[in-house]
Design a protein around this nucleic acid. Structure first.
Lengths: 196, 196
DNA sequence: CTAGAATCGGGATGGGCGTCCCGCTTGTTT
DNA sequence: AAACAAGCGGGACGCCCATCCCGATTCTAG
């Protein structure tokens, strides 16, 4: 078939086109199932199991996503891009003192509802190395907003980025029941005795 | 040999006696090396590797400690018993409002200097199921002191034990550099707007 | 010093997982 | 409808790890 490549058909996107109909369906189904499974049971679920639940063979999964890491990237990169955009909007809309807390809260809520994302957020290097761009960008936004909020005196000056990561991860791990208390504890603590 | 069992020789202790001299030496060396390795590199280090570093065969390790879990128990149970005693002393010495924070801080410092202990503290069920007694006892003390401190109004009433566990684990994960800031953030946050 | 039992070493075993491969099936094009 | 390439399934392979086992070695009692 060889794909004519006429006109504006640029193959930069991860080949959504030029796939047979059933292949595209399977790919989508795998993505859907994997997202669900990673979200509810974490990243340690075997690829085998994802294939089984998607009703396809393991070969089908590993052809579309040669590596488990590739599958993970495919699932997470969209979300990370979206979160980065959200971070930018927050930075624009909120005032410097509260933008950091708004992003922090948004990220925690996102992670609390997704086991896999929480694991990613907790492992440091993995998130950074993941979508090359997406993960690093989001981390960069958080880092910047932290610095800004600290300059504005709304976050204790002595906490570091690594402290933030650790606290964020802790909040994300409280999936069940009320997320409120721990979030509130951490945010209050981060404010310190600063002006309210 | 059959061990005469004369007099007051009660075999309740994990057979320290009745072991050949070299066996006792090896056992001690394995314990020592494993404690060091688990502390610096975490619990995922292969038993194989521990044997290698201790200069013994894997068989020697698995004879003294049939299971990796057994090895872990042997290392941790002493420490957990000690920490439980420390918890009791803290409860006796400090006033109800501050005892909880004293124990919390002590546990965090212990975990921050020991990768393996931090992992145990973070996994919930493992610590509880570990020394049956030791782990549960320590957790119980923390739980009680939390309740007491909350009744005294020194800890926000809306935080739960699971929140405490998550925050403790987060503090423990900040091994490097300054433990101070994050501990202070969390403790301040837990106090909430309560009376100082 | 010697016999015999306790202990040792590390290879063998079994299970789990990610990835690759190949004979078969299915979609697509003409 | 037929032919052919794209895609599929799931078994095969390789790796890592914990645990078990047994012939070789070392301690110790006498």
């Amino acid at each position: 078939m060889a794909v004519p490549l006429v006109d504006g058909e640029v193959p930069t996107m991860t080949d959504e086109r030029a796939l047979r109909a059933d292949a595209r369906r399977n790919r989508a189904r795998v993505l859907e199932v994997a997202a669900e499974v990673f979200a509810t049971e974490g990243l340690s679920v075997p690829v085998h199991e994802i294939a089984r639940r998607a009703g396809v063979g393991t070969g089908t999964v590993s052809r579309h996503f040669p590596t488990k890491e590739d599958l993970l990237v495919a699932i997470m990169s969209n979300r990370l891009v979206r979160l980065t955009a959200e971070a930018d909007e927050i930075a624009r809309r909120e005032d410097p003192g509260t933008a950091f807390f708004a992003l922090f809260t948004a990220l925690v809520r996102e992670g609390a509802s997704d086991c896999g994302l929480a694991e990613l957020a907790g492992t440091e290097r993995r998130l950074d190395a993941l979508g090359q761009r997406a993960g690093a960008d989001l981390c960069g936004r958080l880092h910047e907003l932290l610095a800004t909020a600290q300059k504005a005196g709304n976050v204790r000056a002595d906490v570091g980025y690594a402290d933030i990561r650790a606290l964020m991860s802790a909040c994300m791990s409280r999936k069940e029941d009320p997320l409120g208390p721990i979030l509130s504890v951490v945010i209050d603590g981060l404010r310190g005795g600063a002006s309210g």
